[in-house]
């Protein structure tokens, strides 16, 4: 027996995909295939392996970029959170980066680093790093004063306090910041493929659009959104399993 909430989710999905199907049959636009056409195209893309090769290529800059921004972002965030002077010096740059439409830097990156992997990794990094660094910094700075005092009063050394108190206390928000960074990284990776050079999934989207194979185009877009959403949801689940009992504070964009 399905629970009420799952039943409603199914119903809701049925409505939306049904509406998509109907709109495609009317059709609302020559460029709007039906849901079933798109899903057929998706299964063909999966069946002949095109999609897997494409993701192999799309995910490379994303993975490399996230690894770099994860290490650098968390590292810088730690220093920002622990040191007031560094906070004053470095934080404003990330604050500006976080509010700014950094996508506008892409033409410049292409000029500087060409149209290869480097540029794409860079795009992922500039999108993902600010949110990771700022959340890490904030989490470290917001460690409850009383548990730090506790560490001091029980004779903890500076490194004891950072390693045994500040870091564990900050880790839920750091992890959540990392998740937001990955979410932004997805945007960067797709943007890079659509704007810099069409490779991977971006290539499927661009190519099928140019030959007016709209079902394949929709299928590719559908697949990347599903992939991102499923992956980010899994991360959120993991977060709840890891830090379930101690959710203090929220990561912010």
């Amino acid at each position: 027996m399905l629970s009420r909430s799952n039943l409603l989710k199914l119903l809701s999905a049925f409505f939306v995909f049904g509406a998509w199907e109907v709109a495609g049959r009317i059709p609302v636009s020559f460029a709007f295939p039906t849901f079933l056409e798109s899903m057929t195209a998706l299964s063909i893309l999966i069946w002949d392996g095109t999609l897997f090769t494409a993701y192999g290529e799309t995910l490379r800059p994303l993975v490399v970029g996230i690894l770099i921004s994860g290490f650098l972002g968390i590292g810088i965030g730690l220093f920002i959170g622990l040191n007031r002077k560094l906070d004053w010096l470095v934080s404003p740059i990330f604050v500006v980066m976080q509010t700014a439409p950094l996508a506008a830097l892409i033409p410049l990156l292409v000029m500087a680093y060409g149209i290869g992997l480097t540029s794409k990794v860079f795009v992922v990094c500039i999108m993902a790093m600010p949110v990771i660094a700022l959340n890490t910094g904030g989490a470290v700075r917001n460690t409850p004063a009383s548990i730090k005092e506790m560490g001091l009063s029980f004779l903890g050394t500076r490194s004891d306090i950072v390693l045994k108190i500040v870091l564990p206390a900050a880790s839920p928000v750091i992890f959540a910041g990392l998740r937001l960074g990955i979410s932004a990284g997805f945007i960067g990776a797709i943007l890079a493929e659509l704007k810099i050079t069409p490779t991977g999934v971006g290539d499927i989207i661009t190519y099928s659009r140019s030959i007016a194979d709209y079902p394949s185009m929709y299928a590719a877009i559908f697949s990347i959104i599903v992939l991102a959403v499923v992956f980010l949801n899994l991360l959120e689940k993991l977060e709840r399993i890891l830090f379930g009992g101690l959710n203090r504070g929220y990561a912010s964009e």
Binding site: R4, S5, L8, L11, F15, I187, L194, R209, I225
Partner: peptide, 20 residues
């Protein structure tokens, strides 16, 4: 309950992909 799943999906989805 009908709409929340979709809102959450679009909140975290890379909407850039929809631009084409």
């Amino acid at each position: 309950e009908l709409l929340l799943p979709w809102v959450n999906i679009f909140l975290s989805a890379p909407l850039t992909a929809l631009v084409p």
